[in-house]
Every structure is written in structure tokens, then in C-alpha cells.
Design a protein around this nucleic acid. Sequence first.
DNA 1: TTGTATGCGTTATCAC
DNA 2: GTGATAACGCATACAA
Lengths: 345, 345
Amino acid sequence: MKSKKRVTIYDIAQRLNVTASTVSRALSNNGYVNEATKQLVLKTAAELNYKRNTLASNLRMGQTQTIGVVVPRINQNFFSNVIAGIEAITYQKGYNLIICQSDELHEKEVKCVNTLINQHVDCIVISVSADSYNYDHLQNVLDQGIRLIQFDRVAEELETLKVINDNEQASFEAICHLIGQGYKKIALLEGPQNLNIFRQRKIGYLRALEKFNILVDETIVVENAWTKELGAEATRKLLSLRTPPDAIFASTSDFSALGVLEVATAMGFKVPTQLGICGYSNEAFTEITSPSITTIDQFSVNMGTAVANLYFDELGNKDTSVTPKTISIKPELIVRASSSKKSQV
Amino acid sequence: MKSKKRVTIYDIAQRLNVTASTVSRALSNNGYVNEATKQLVLKTAAELNYKRNTLASNLRMGQTQTIGVVVPRINQNFFSNVIAGIEAITYQKGYNLIICQSDELHEKEVKCVNTLINQHVDCIVISVSADSYNYDHLQNVLDQGIRLIQFDRVAEELETLKVINDNEQASFEAICHLIGQGYKKIALLEGPQNLNIFRQRKIGYLRALEKFNILVDETIVVENAWTKELGAEATRKLLSLRTPPDAIFASTSDFSALGVLEVATAMGFKVPTQLGICGYSNEAFTEITSPSITTIDQFSVNMGTAVANLYFDELGNKDTSVTPKTISIKPELIVRASSSKKSQV
DNA sequence: TTGTATGCGTTATCAC
DNA sequence: GTGATAACGCATACAA
């Protein structure tokens, strides 16, 4: 629908027998304007219930004070936390947030990015979708003179600001912990290898094995065990092996780890004594399963604030081009019962 | 920063020796334009990497194809699900979403709403914050000719479209279920009574007790037991009474119910035999606690799609005023172990 | 079918 | 200090 006619600065001007420019100056606190008339303008603006038309203002000023965010899933804990973190900062700065969801679909992601470009957002913040296969649309963002910040799942080859987790190190530490607890044969549930985060987690796993001179056994490295169901399915197979693993690192997510736990329990494997489990993400539920699940906290809200701060610190007002920079947030291994064999002895 | 100069319809026009209006018509598929020139325009637009300036377009057209959403917390399961539901529909329709978070603060909520008004959104979708004490800002929305839809937590006195859960009925059924299971003394953990949802849940509780001729015992009705911690604290007191309740309905949330469960277990009360528990919201974790927690599913994603559909069906194109209408979604009682005394016997 | 002219509501650059 | 005027980029009523 066409909204009804709103009050504009002309209406205020008319009332006070001044011109729109004076009103504009008074309202935006810009340029000289008599204190008395200013107060008068402010007063009548309030009386008439005037609301500035941000569209017109933005068009004129060539910037929108708006940041566009593209995430695979709005209602996934990690992402909604990051968004909350971003919001906390942008709100203080008077910036708006336009949120888009790619549904893990490359095509949709491209559309979202284009909409945001059309909207003239000042900056686009993105975590790429699982099936993304090229990054032309992101290059496009830069070409249009729009700031770009990638977080968590990033296109490494693109030279932009990035905020990531040190997935490799976290993964490495998790495996070291498991080995330290006496687990000898550690299976890996891995995610789509086109995503940097899963590649890194695998590298951390391999590096840890290497450190302890453990040979990699490809039969216990399972591709694409991303969801609870896939984690469960993988576990069923793993635990049916002639010599099953004595620990499983669900590097994809805690949901996957939950699948592992449920199947293991159902199959009569005692956790953590016969099977150690480690997940990833520190979902709320990992604390309350029995046994509780060892996992890795990603400080998702902090990632959001880091992203937003990065924009304001590095990109905010400068007209200069920016040197690519990566902020790495160190995740934290949260040791819980599901991997604590020693303390149980 | 000022974005660099972008390509406009004038640039395309110049290239092709036509006027901007022709280009505009060609691009927006509006009005007569020769098929050949149209193709030419489309082609050069692509070549020059033209992106329509939505700001200018919106300003001209007087509408933004944008819906503003205000929720207390972006990263709370229920709300992020609703948002995901809204997004699913609005995306199809080519609408954008601006998301704001009130942080449960009335002041911030007012600011968010005003920003959205300034942004000329076509519609504002809101679930009010816990400490809201008046609704002038919402009246304001209507006065500005902007559509308003309330969901879940609504200001009942405002005549707008609303999408709510039938909290009273759900609550009523939960209590009937508990009584049916043989629980005799059912405590209620209630939330802030300025929110309609908590008032209704209390009414449902009272109505069920009345139905079974059970007198209300005010000593086991606990105000403001909203979080896990408050739920835990309330439980400590309740279970220390001379004659403690044999069931607790955490009408505020599953988090509260979790607090109940943990304290009860710690104090040596057997759930469900000595103490029945029912939560609210069907959070993911309720399924995996031991025992699993009986709760109420609110179909949060559906609420979101219902809200969005309501906009497009009722408000979308009509210039007419709208008759207030309330859509009530029936929540579903999910019976689990924490309240299943009979089946355990 | 295309061009001309005008306006959406602001802000900025000039004069006065 | 204030006013006149142009411009941001696009869409449309009207004329040609």
C-alpha cells in the first residue's frame, strides 16, 4: 500500500515561515542556525510528529549507515549469536542491520548479496553457504565500492577482512586431549571439505596424530557426517568394525556428537570408558546430556562484536583502500565427562 | 566512506543514445518499449555491471518492500525461528527484512521502532519487550500509515493484526495432563504478568485447577521464575516446604524447567515419581535430559510464516484500512518422561 | 515507441 | 543567519 502522506521538512518550514533549508539545518544540527529558531523547529517537529525520511537522506548523502549480513541459517545458534554480537555494536553506532539467509544455497546467497548491493548498504558481512562454488558475487561487492567482511566460513583466496576461529588449533588440542586421556584409535567425522572450517579441523586432527606418531586410518575418517542423523549413522558403522575406534571426534557439530552418543549408548558402549566423544560448538545441550559432552566453544557472540568493531575501526570513515587482515579468535576446549576416561578410573 | 561512483541508468542511456526513461522502462519492465532496445539495454546493463539503486527507487515509489522486525532477543531460539519463518515467505515475495533487537528494554524498543519508521518500512512486526509499559510507539506506527503486526507477546488493547499462541489452552491441557497422571499439588512458576502470554498461562493453570475442584494454594505460585537460575531457586524453596508440591509447571520456559529438574535431582526427589515437571517451548534439549522433559511446542517457525502470510494476504496491496484480526496457533503438549508417572508404574 | 519534464524528501553550495 | 537552487537516482504522466 501507499503510506499516507507524511510530515516533511516543508510542512515544518511552512508553519514557521522559514525555508526547508533552515529546518534541515536545525534538525540535523548542521551549519549555522539561530538558537531560537532551532528550538522552534525542534518543537514543531515534535508537535507535528515529524519523522525524517531516511531514504531521501541516504540517497542524498550517498551512504546508508546500514550493514547487510548474510548467513546460511538465521536460526542456527552459532549464527544468531554472531548476529546478536554484531547488533550490540552497530546499535550503539546508530547503524541498521539487514539480515539475509542463504539457506546454504549458493544461488540464494548470490541473490541476497545483490539485494544488499542494491540497497546500498555500507558493508556486507557474510559467512558463505556450504555449497558455494565460486565467489564472483563477493568480488562484485568490492567492485561496487562496498566494504566486505567475511567471518567463520570464508573464501580464503579473497583478500578481505576476515574474522575466523582458529579451527585447526582447536581441533589439534581436542585430539591431543583425547590421546592424553589414553584413547588410541580416534575416528574423525568431517564436514564438507569445500568449507575452510572443516578443512582446518581435519588438518588439526592430522597434525595431532602425526605429533604422536599415530598412523592415519582412512577407514575411520567419515565424510559428511554433519547432522545428528549422519553422525548416528556413521557411528553405527564405526562401532561395527572388527576393531572399532575407542574415540570419535565429531568435528562437524555437537549435533553430530549427540548422534554418536545416542547410538553408542544404544549399542552398549560405555562413554567415556569404552568410547570417548568430542563435539564442536558448545551447544547448550552438551552440558546436560549424560554423560555431558566435551566440546569446543567458539565464542560466537564475540565473533560478532569483533566483526562489527573491525568495520568501525578499519573501514568506518576512511576513504582509503584497506589492507586485508584476519582476526583469529581462539576457541576453547571444554573438557567434560564424555572424554574424561582418566578421572573416571 | 563514500562509495565510489556507481553506474546509473543515465550511463546506460548515454551509451545507447536513448534517454534515461527508456532505460528505466526497459529495466523495470514497465510501459512500452521496443523489444530490440530493451534487449540492448539489458545487455549493456549487464556489461556495465549496473545495479539498481533501491534507495532512489523506493523514494520515488513511496514504498520499500521492506518489513521491519523487532524482537526482544535475536539469538533466542523461539525468536530466531519466527524470523526464519518470516524470511521464508518474504524472500519469495522479494521483500527485505530489517531486524532489530529490543534487549527486553522498552526504551530500546521505542528507538528501534522509530528507526524502522524513518526507514519507511512497509510493515513492522513486533513482539514486545518484557518491561514495556506503554504502547505509544506502536500507535505511532499506525499513525504513520505503516502496517503493524504483533506476534506472541502482544499489546492486547491495540487493534492490530495479531498472531498468537493459545497459551491459555495449552497451559490448561498441561495441567489436566498432570492431574490425570495423579499429581495432586501442582506448583506454578509464572512470568512477568505485564506480558499477555504469562497472564494467559496462569489463567489456563487456574482454570484447570478449578475444573478439578482443586483450591489454589498461593504459596506454591511463584512469581518471576523465568530463567534456569530463578527456576532452580524457586524449586529449592518449594521442595523445602513442609508439604512440598508433587509437580511443578514451569510455565515460563524450558530453561526454568531445567533448573527445576536439576535441583530436584540434587535434592533427591525422583522425577517423575515423586515430582512431575512440565516446561514450555519445546527447546531442543528437553528431549535429551534424563528424564526427558514434558513441554509445549509453539510451532515457532509456523508463527513466522503465518505473520508474513498475514501481511501479504491482508495488508499487501490494499489501500483500505484493515479490520483487526487475530490468528491463534494451537500449541501442542509434548508428553515426555518427566511427567509420566502412570506409565512408569 | 520514445523523449520531456517533474517530483520523491533531503542535504549542500552558493548567494544574500 | 537564512533563502534559493541544484542534485542524489529513479519512475511516471504527458507530449510527441
